[in-house]
């Protein structure tokens, strides 16, 4: 591409990005305004919790277990050099509760549930199901979009908590059962160093924010998808890529706000 074309192209992309951001914000507000049905007919939301939460359970639990096990192996190697292998529990718990739990389960949630939601809504649009709903005087944002969004918002913190909990159990399996770190020290050090409000509540807040962001991106990309097979597959890819970047960016912002090193 000649240099003369490069700058207008960048300009167009930025312009387009800002336009989409504004559109997404307007979409978000409309959806919030139309969210009544997601709670007044809660069975609609329960169904989406099933699709986003229950069907993500296995991948979350298995990855949590392995992440915790790897953390324990790596952590033990480093800690025992300084003769403080009893701090293994603290290391595993803090890394999971503060960072890895929310972030990794957010990334898994985006690729497992977010992409599915985008594909589903995109296909409903491509096969005119959303149009048909409108013609039946049913608002698709209230009936289709809002329950999926709230289902994701509710499921995500629970998934992140499960991820952290199974990760800590994985760390316990490797650290205490396999390597033989003292069990009492493992748990008591963890308890004295992990603070409920500072660490656990902040981790839950993170996962709640990630859940809302991923769900919003997923429903927006689906609703905004070009109604063709290619358009839906592009939208699905965009959901995963955008969600992952947004999670990592939001994680940085939230970490900077929460753990300023008191």
């Amino acid at each position: 591409m000649p240099l003369a074309d490069l700058f207008p192209a960048i300009g167009r992309r930025v312009n387009n990005g800002i336009w989409r951001l504004g559109y997404a914000a307007r979409f978000f507000l409309t959806m919030l305004g139309r969210s009544g049905i997601a709670f007044s007919r809660f069975s609609l939301t329960v169904k989406e919790i099933y699709f986003t939460g229950v069907l993500s359970l296995i991948v979350i639990v298995v990855s949590g277990l392995f992440v915790g096990m790897v953390l324990a192996l790596q952590g033990y190697n480093t800690l025992q050099r300084y003769g403080s292998s009893e701090a293994l529990g603290v290391l595993v718990a803090l890394s999971l509760v503060r960072e890895l739990g929310p972030v990794v389960s957010g990334l898994l949630f985006a690729s497992r549930a977010g992409s599915a939601v985008t594909a589903e809504i995109g296909l409903m649009k491509a096969t005119e199901q959303l149009s048909a709903m409108e013609m039946m005087a049913v608002n698709p944002i209230a009936r289709v979009v809002a329950p999926r969004f709230w289902g994701g918002v509710i499921a995500m913190p629970l998934l992140a908590a499960l991820f952290s909990a199974t990760g800590i159990l994985g760390g316990y399996l490797i650290g205490v059962v396999l390597i033989g770190v003292d069990e009492g020290a493992f748990w008591s050090q963890m308890q004295s160093m992990v603070d409920f409000r500072e660490d656990i509540v902040n981790g839950v807040i993170k996962s709640l924010v990630f859940g809302a962001l991923v769900s919003l991106i997923a429903v927006f990309e689906g609703y905004d998808a070009v109604p063709t097979a290619e358009g839906v597959s592009n939208a699905t890819t965009r959901t995963v890529v955008t969600s992952s970047l947004v999670i990592l960016f939001a994680d940085f912002i939230l970490t900077a706000l929460m753990f300023r090193g008191s």
Partner: peptide, 17 residues
């Protein structure tokens, strides 16, 4: 699912935190 999630949260709060 919700029960498991809540149990995990309680575990984090009491046993870990």
């Amino acid at each position: 699912f919700v029960t498991m999630g809540v149990v995990a949260l309680v575990f984090l709060a009491l046993k870990v935190g």
